[in-house]
Design a protein around this nucleic acid. Structure first.
Lengths: 216, 216
DNA sequence: TTCGTTGGCGTGCGATGTACGCCTACGACC
DNA sequence: GGTCGTAGGCGTACATCGCACGCCAACGAA
């Protein structure tokens, strides 16, 4: 049966996007810990092992989820603004997409490298950096620094947001042991995660501006 | 039996540090996935459930490991150098300690918030920042930006180092689709993780210097 | 000598990922 | 229109995980 690529005996009834949507539904409803081959299969109306017709295993299921969330990011290069503003826009878009499903942060962090959507984002960011004058090693460092900050921020938002219980515990610490940390925690409770992210990114971008004018 | 704190019927034969060391031995030998209540108990010469006499559960076992690794960090404030050099030293020390056991990175990231050792590090860093003139909100943002970069860097080193297979795959990509990404990946393969971290940190520190002189 | 406290062990349960073999629907071909 | 091979989907079964629970044994205090 040569060349019979389409119109196979029984066509797949589910797309990979369907699977990803079902998995996200489970995660959003019952939390990341509830993401299970069984639970996703159930969400799709399949028996447990039926899911394996669409996914190689748990690993690929997680990748599908991560890529589906990142696929929602608009990766067109922003038209307006200087290069710091453009990079900032790209970063904010990615962050906003992830914020739609906060529980998937660990999956994004883990599977980022193999997501096509993440590659598109990186390519767009590199275009902005290149147009700004970053070349060679400086561009490598710039992208990696942005990525590090981005990933770290997502992680900190997920576990250990300034508005969360961790900071509250720090703020309530007896003043004797960690005076500065306690004071900083108290102040930090008044900073929204978005503002924290934005201002930290500004700091990093200022550093990149400095690096650009001093090619060391 | 009042006040009978020491000299109990059968004194604990293992300290929490012993447990952490055993867990680290398992991780270093067989990988993080091999970290199991059973495997750690076996490493200690206990039966599986015997381990529960020393640890509340898997959660606390992981915390013990994370804290044990971070406890090796020298958190004294560096005596010499300007404030950027001091912050840099503190960051490098933390990174070096984690690099001793690369597999524990996910544990550190997850349990950082509840580690006393991490608090000591934060307090030391805040001392340097405060002495440099960072106050109020600016200090909050500075610490969080440093933390984000640090956490992100660790994560990127763990999964997705520039010298690892992920970057190699990117570098081998057909030039048509992601030209800048492929070129950047090729360049990146020649950057050691240490150098990447150091140079990215310099960028961030420059941004902090700028923020200090322009209190916005 | 007795007793209560505590370290440590063994069994067993529910949940997870998935290997493996089976049945069945259906398009392609004669 | 009958036949057949392919691929979708299911069910069973298993190794492994964390851990609840109850037991025994050792040992200091009385």
């Amino acid at each position: 049966m040569p060349y019979a690529v389409k119109a196979m005996p029984r066509p797949r009834s589910l797309s990979q996007a369907d699977v990803a949507v079902a998995a996200l539904a489970v995660i959003d409803r019952d939390g990341l810990a509830a993401l299970t081959m069984r639970s996703v299969a159930g969400e799709l109306g399949l028996a447990t092992m039926g899911l394996y017709r669409y996914v190689l295993g748990r690993e690929q299921l997680e990748q599908l989820v991560a890529d589906h969330v990142l696929a929602a990011v608009d990766t067109r290069v922003p038209a307006r603004g200087g290069w710091p503003a453009r990079v900032s826009t790209l970063a904010a878009r990615l962050r906003a997409a992830v914020a739609t499903h906060p529980e998937v942060v660990p999956l994004i962090v883990t599977h980022r490298a193999t997501c096509p959507a993440a590659r598109r984002w990186a390519e767009a960011t590199l275009e902005v950096l290149a147009a700004a004058g970053f070349a060679g090693m400086a561009r490598v460092i710039a992208l990696r620094a942005l990525l590090s900050y981005l990933i770290g921020s997502l992680q900190l938002d997920d576990r250990g947001s300034l508005t969360g219980p961790g900071t509250a515990a720090l703020a309530a610490l007896p003043a004797g042991e960690y005076p500065l940390l306690a004071e900083t925690a108290r102040l930090g409770q008044r900073v929204s995660p978005d503002e924290e992210f934005r201002r930290g990114l500004i700091v990093l971008l200022r550093g990149l501006e400095a690096a650009l004018s001093t090619p060391d």
